[in-house]
Amino acid sequence: MSSDSAKPTTDSKPEEKPTTDSKPEEKPTTDSKPVVKKPEEKKVELPAFEKSISDKIVEKFGDKVEVAFVKKDRVGINVSRENVHDVAEFIRDGLNYDHVESVSGVDYPQDNEIAVVYHIGSYSDPSLARQLLVLSTRAQREENPIPGSDATRLPTLRDIFYSVEFHEREIFEMFGVYFEGHPDNRRLLLPEDWADIPPLRKDFAIKGR
Protein backbone atom coordinates (compact mmCIF):
# COMPACT_ATOMS: atom_id res chain seq x y z
CA MET A 1 0.00 0.00 0.00
CA SER A 2 1.44 3.31 -0.93
CA SER A 3 0.41 6.46 0.78
CA ASP A 4 1.05 9.28 -1.54
CA SER A 5 1.04 12.05 0.98
CA ALA A 6 0.42 12.22 4.64
CA LYS A 7 -1.80 15.23 4.27
CA PRO A 8 -5.35 14.82 3.05
CA THR A 9 -6.39 16.14 -0.30
CA THR A 10 -6.42 19.74 0.70
CA ASP A 11 -2.93 19.72 -0.75
CA SER A 12 -2.76 21.12 -4.17
CA LYS A 13 -1.31 19.05 -6.95
CA PRO A 14 2.19 20.49 -6.92
CA GLU A 15 2.52 19.26 -3.38
CA GLU A 16 1.60 15.75 -4.34
CA LYS A 17 4.09 15.58 -7.11
CA PRO A 18 7.30 15.55 -5.09
CA THR A 19 6.18 12.60 -3.02
CA THR A 20 5.22 10.59 -6.05
CA ASP A 21 8.35 11.68 -7.85
CA SER A 22 10.46 10.31 -5.09
CA LYS A 23 9.18 6.81 -5.82
CA PRO A 24 11.06 6.13 -9.04
CA GLU A 25 14.27 7.13 -7.34
CA GLU A 26 14.05 4.52 -4.68
CA LYS A 27 12.93 1.80 -7.04
CA PRO A 28 16.27 0.95 -8.65
CA THR A 29 17.82 0.33 -5.28
CA THR A 30 15.16 -2.12 -4.25
CA ASP A 31 14.99 -3.69 -7.65
CA SER A 32 18.59 -4.77 -7.65
CA LYS A 33 18.22 -7.36 -4.89
CA PRO A 34 14.70 -8.58 -4.64
CA VAL A 35 15.36 -12.29 -4.49
CA VAL A 36 17.87 -12.60 -1.70
CA LYS A 37 15.95 -11.94 1.48
CA LYS A 38 12.24 -11.73 1.09
CA PRO A 39 10.73 -11.46 4.55
CA GLU A 40 12.85 -8.55 5.68
CA GLU A 41 12.51 -6.44 2.62
CA LYS A 42 8.80 -6.82 2.21
CA LYS A 43 8.09 -3.30 3.33
CA VAL A 44 10.22 -1.45 0.85
CA GLU A 45 10.30 -3.95 -1.97
CA LEU A 46 8.16 -3.16 -4.96
CA PRO A 47 6.63 -6.10 -6.80
CA ALA A 48 9.06 -6.92 -9.58
CA PHE A 49 6.64 -7.71 -12.36
CA GLU A 50 4.57 -4.61 -11.80
CA LYS A 51 7.73 -2.61 -11.61
CA SER A 52 8.82 -3.88 -14.99
CA ILE A 53 5.56 -2.72 -16.52
CA SER A 54 5.92 0.75 -15.14
CA ASP A 55 9.55 0.83 -16.21
CA LYS A 56 8.59 0.03 -19.78
CA ILE A 57 6.21 2.94 -19.86
CA VAL A 58 8.71 5.30 -18.27
CA GLU A 59 11.35 4.16 -20.68
CA LYS A 60 9.15 4.93 -23.65
CA PHE A 61 7.76 8.27 -22.55
CA GLY A 62 10.32 9.61 -20.12
CA ASP A 63 9.08 12.46 -18.03
CA LYS A 64 5.80 12.75 -19.90
CA VAL A 65 4.39 10.13 -17.58
CA GLU A 66 4.55 9.91 -13.86
CA VAL A 67 4.34 6.68 -11.92
CA ALA A 68 1.79 7.27 -9.18
CA PHE A 69 2.11 3.97 -7.38
CA VAL A 70 3.27 0.42 -7.88
CA LYS A 71 1.35 -1.99 -5.69
CA LYS A 72 0.66 -5.65 -5.88
CA ASP A 73 -1.20 -6.22 -9.17
CA ARG A 74 -1.79 -2.53 -9.71
CA VAL A 75 0.33 0.00 -11.55
CA GLY A 76 -0.71 3.61 -11.46
CA ILE A 77 0.32 6.02 -14.19
CA ASN A 78 -0.47 9.71 -14.32
CA VAL A 79 -0.45 11.39 -17.71
CA SER A 80 -1.25 14.85 -18.86
CA ARG A 81 -4.19 15.22 -21.16
CA GLU A 82 -2.04 15.91 -24.20
CA ASN A 83 -0.25 12.60 -23.94
CA VAL A 84 -3.01 10.30 -22.77
CA HIS A 85 -3.87 9.16 -26.26
CA ASP A 86 -0.30 8.18 -27.11
CA VAL A 87 0.26 6.46 -23.81
CA ALA A 88 -2.95 4.48 -24.16
CA GLU A 89 -1.94 3.44 -27.64
CA PHE A 90 1.37 2.19 -26.31
CA ILE A 91 -0.37 0.37 -23.49
CA ARG A 92 -2.49 -1.50 -25.98
CA ASP A 93 0.11 -2.22 -28.63
CA GLY A 94 3.25 -2.48 -26.57
CA LEU A 95 2.00 -3.97 -23.35
CA ASN A 96 -0.88 -6.17 -24.53
CA TYR A 97 -3.60 -4.64 -22.42
CA ASP A 98 -6.84 -4.97 -24.28
CA HIS A 99 -9.90 -3.75 -22.44
CA VAL A 100 -11.00 -1.15 -19.94
CA GLU A 101 -12.71 -2.41 -16.82
CA SER A 102 -13.84 0.82 -15.38
CA VAL A 103 -13.64 4.51 -16.02
CA SER A 104 -14.14 6.71 -13.01
CA GLY A 105 -14.10 10.42 -12.64
CA VAL A 106 -12.84 12.05 -9.50
CA ASP A 107 -13.44 15.71 -8.88
CA TYR A 108 -10.68 17.72 -7.20
CA PRO A 109 -12.05 21.24 -6.74
CA GLN A 110 -8.98 22.33 -4.77
CA ASP A 111 -6.73 21.53 -7.74
CA ASN A 112 -9.30 22.87 -10.17
CA GLU A 113 -9.12 19.61 -12.04
CA ILE A 114 -11.23 16.57 -12.73
CA ALA A 115 -9.34 13.31 -12.86
CA VAL A 116 -10.49 10.53 -15.14
CA VAL A 117 -9.15 7.16 -14.14
CA TYR A 118 -9.08 4.21 -16.53
CA HIS A 119 -8.61 0.74 -15.10
CA ILE A 120 -7.16 -1.26 -17.93
CA GLY A 121 -6.89 -5.03 -17.91
CA SER A 122 -5.99 -7.80 -20.26
CA TYR A 123 -7.82 -10.91 -21.35
CA SER A 124 -5.53 -12.11 -24.06
CA ASP A 125 -2.24 -12.15 -22.18
CA PRO A 126 -2.31 -14.71 -19.36
CA SER A 127 0.61 -13.15 -17.54
CA LEU A 128 -1.35 -9.93 -17.22
CA ALA A 129 -4.54 -11.54 -15.95
CA ARG A 130 -4.02 -10.35 -12.41
CA GLN A 131 -2.80 -6.94 -13.42
CA LEU A 132 -4.71 -3.73 -13.75
CA LEU A 133 -3.10 -0.65 -15.13
CA VAL A 134 -4.53 2.49 -13.61
CA LEU A 135 -4.15 5.26 -16.14
CA SER A 136 -5.20 8.57 -14.78
CA THR A 137 -5.41 11.88 -16.52
CA ARG A 138 -6.81 15.22 -15.55
CA ALA A 139 -9.07 17.66 -17.29
CA GLN A 140 -9.42 21.30 -16.50
CA ARG A 141 -12.34 22.10 -14.25
CA GLU A 142 -14.68 25.02 -14.74
CA GLU A 143 -16.34 26.91 -11.94
CA ASN A 144 -19.58 27.26 -13.87
CA PRO A 145 -19.78 24.22 -16.06
CA ILE A 146 -21.56 24.21 -19.40
CA PRO A 147 -21.11 20.56 -20.30
CA GLY A 148 -19.92 20.15 -23.82
CA SER A 149 -18.97 23.71 -24.57
CA ASP A 150 -16.45 24.66 -21.94
CA ALA A 151 -12.81 23.81 -21.48
CA THR A 152 -13.42 20.57 -19.59
CA ARG A 153 -12.28 18.31 -22.40
CA LEU A 154 -10.25 15.21 -22.90
CA PRO A 155 -9.39 13.18 -25.97
CA THR A 156 -11.46 10.05 -26.19
CA LEU A 157 -9.88 6.63 -25.92
CA ARG A 158 -12.73 4.97 -27.76
CA ASP A 159 -10.68 4.41 -30.89
CA ILE A 160 -8.09 2.56 -28.81
CA PHE A 161 -10.12 0.71 -26.24
CA TYR A 162 -13.56 0.24 -27.65
CA SER A 163 -14.99 -0.75 -24.30
CA VAL A 164 -14.90 2.79 -22.94
CA GLU A 165 -17.84 3.83 -25.06
CA PHE A 166 -20.59 3.82 -22.44
CA HIS A 167 -18.22 4.62 -19.62
CA GLU A 168 -17.21 7.86 -21.28
CA ARG A 169 -20.80 8.76 -21.91
CA GLU A 170 -21.41 8.28 -18.22
CA ILE A 171 -18.45 10.45 -17.25
CA PHE A 172 -19.69 13.17 -19.56
CA GLU A 173 -23.06 13.41 -17.90
CA MET A 174 -21.78 12.87 -14.38
CA PHE A 175 -18.81 15.24 -14.49
CA GLY A 176 -19.25 17.29 -17.63
CA VAL A 177 -16.00 16.07 -19.17
CA TYR A 178 -16.49 16.25 -22.91
CA PHE A 179 -14.61 13.59 -24.82
CA GLU A 180 -13.37 14.95 -28.08
CA GLY A 181 -13.77 12.50 -30.88
CA HIS A 182 -16.37 10.40 -29.13
CA PRO A 183 -19.17 10.02 -31.66
CA ASP A 184 -21.97 9.59 -29.20
CA ASN A 185 -21.77 12.07 -26.34
CA ARG A 186 -25.40 11.75 -25.35
CA ARG A 187 -27.08 11.35 -22.00
CA LEU A 188 -27.06 7.87 -20.65
CA LEU A 189 -28.37 7.55 -17.13
CA LEU A 190 -29.73 10.92 -16.09
CA PRO A 191 -33.26 12.01 -16.98
CA GLU A 192 -33.72 13.83 -20.25
CA ASP A 193 -34.69 17.06 -18.55
CA TRP A 194 -31.73 17.23 -16.21
CA ALA A 195 -30.91 20.93 -16.04
CA ASP A 196 -28.58 21.06 -13.08
CA ILE A 197 -24.81 20.84 -13.02
CA PRO A 198 -23.33 17.36 -13.41
CA PRO A 199 -24.23 15.55 -10.22
CA LEU A 200 -21.01 13.84 -9.21
CA ARG A 201 -19.04 17.08 -9.04
CA LYS A 202 -18.20 18.08 -5.52
CA ASP A 203 -20.05 21.38 -5.71
CA PHE A 204 -23.32 19.61 -6.41
CA ALA A 205 -24.81 19.17 -2.97
CA ILE A 206 -27.57 16.66 -2.45
CA LYS A 207 -30.56 17.94 -0.61
CA GLY A 208 -30.40 18.26 3.11
CA ARG A 209 -26.63 17.73 3.32
Binding site: M1, S2, S3, D4, S5, A6, K7, P8, T9, D11, E16, F69, R74, G76, E101, S102, S104, V106, V117, H119, L132, V134
Partner: peptide
Protein backbone atom coordinates in the same frame (compact mmCIF):
# COMPACT_ATOMS: atom_id res chain seq x y z
CA UNK B 1 -8.19 5.45 6.09
CA UNK B 2 -4.70 6.77 6.53
CA UNK B 3 -4.29 9.79 4.36
CA UNK B 4 -4.89 9.95 0.66
CA UNK B 5 -5.13 6.50 -0.85
CA UNK B 6 -6.87 4.70 -3.65
CA UNK B 7 -7.82 1.09 -3.94
CA UNK B 8 -9.47 -0.97 -6.65
CA UNK B 9 -10.70 -4.41 -5.71
CA UNK B 10 -12.67 -6.83 -7.80
CA UNK B 11 -14.48 -10.08 -7.29
CA UNK B 12 -16.36 -12.49 -9.49
CA UNK B 13 -20.04 -11.90 -8.91
CA UNK B 14 -22.92 -13.80 -10.44
CA UNK B 15 -22.63 -11.64 -13.52
CA UNK B 16 -18.90 -11.21 -13.86
CA UNK B 17 -16.06 -9.23 -12.49
CA UNK B 18 -17.32 -6.56 -10.16
CA UNK B 19 -14.93 -3.83 -9.13
CA UNK B 20 -15.01 -1.17 -6.51
CA UNK B 21 -12.79 1.86 -6.72
CA UNK B 22 -12.44 3.80 -3.50
CA UNK B 23 -10.61 7.10 -3.17
CA UNK B 24 -10.08 7.95 0.44
CA UNK B 25 -8.78 11.19 1.84
CA UNK B 26 -8.45 10.16 5.45
CA UNK B 27 -11.98 11.11 6.40
Amino acid sequence: GKGFDTVYKRVESGRGSLGCYIVSDGK
